[in-house]
């Protein structure tokens, strides 16, 4: 378990941090506005799905294949495998990653899958 709570943060410190943060955020916001509307080329390369990855590969937090049913019951402290789509130059590439099952990113996909199954 990792320390998540923080000792009292000095409010002055906090205010100055916020000010700088505000600066960083707005900077790019402006620059982006100037770039105008981008064109989209976000097709998912179909070769990604050869062998069907529709079912999420699950694994325990430790990395070894755990007992799925048990984990679901104990709060689903599990990770699912996703493919992260990245560009290398102009080439599309994917990388495997494990992300927590309770991450909102996975949630929506799972829900939709469930809905599709019902149809």
């Amino acid at each position: 378990h990792v320390r998540q709570t923080v000792a009292e943060v000095d409010p002055l410190e906090e205010a100055s941090f916020e000010q700088e943060l505000k600066a960083v955020e707005s900077m790019e916001q402006r620059r982006q506005e100037l770039r105008g509307r981008p064109t989209l080329n976000m097709m998912i390369p179909m070769n990604l799905f050869e062998g069907s990855t529709k079912d999420h590969h699950a694994r325990g937090t430790g990395g070894e294949s755990g007992d799925e049913a048990l984990d679901e019951e104990t709060g689903g402290n599990k990770e699912v495998q996703v493919k992260v789509l990245v560009k290398r130059g102009n080439k599309q590439q994917t990388k495997q990653m494990y992300i927590p099952r309770n991450c909102s990113l996975v949630q929506s996909t799972k829900q939709k899958e469930a809905a599709e199954l019902q149809e």
Binding site: E25, E28, Q29, Q32, E33, R35, G36, R37, P38, M42, I44, L48, F49, T53, K54, H56, V80, Q81, V82, K83, V84, L85, V86, T94, M97, I99, L105, V106, S108, T109, K112, E113, E116
Partner: peptide, 20 residues
């Protein structure tokens, strides 16, 4: 400005900027 979105049906995620 970056965040992940996922594909609707596949377990693929990608980084996308909030604006634009």
């Amino acid at each position: 400005l970056l965040g992940f979105i996922s594909a609707k049906t596949e377990s693929v995620v990608v980084l996308l900027c909030r604006e634009p």
